[in-house]
Amino acid sequence: MTPPLEYYLLFAAALFAIGVAGVLLRRNVIIVFMSIELMLNAVNVTFIAFSRQMNNIDGQIFVFFVMTLAAAEVAVGLAIIVAMFRNKESINIEDMNLLKW
């Protein structure tokens, strides 16, 4: 007995909501980054669930590209965090207001 598609969608929605809450709640940039990873993974779950539902592999290829993008994003993002820490001695997101107006 395989669980129906709705279960996967609700699970992914819950995971995405946790990610959103993490981005809004936390002030530590690294945790904010991890929450973004959570949201990306929630989207991956829906992609793969629909891929199984339609018995079509295109959704899984898309997940493959999302993973590539996540790897690139983490590398650049963490480099930015390290560079910011060197200048400001802080990883609090409130201190990163250079582009704020």
């Binding site: 669980p3 996967y8 991956n44 793969i48 199984r52 993973m67």
Partner: peptide, 14 residues
Amino acid sequence: SLAGIFLLLEAYFL
């Protein structure tokens, strides 16, 4: 855990 869920959905490679 998500990798486990991918397995349930027949996404073995992913």
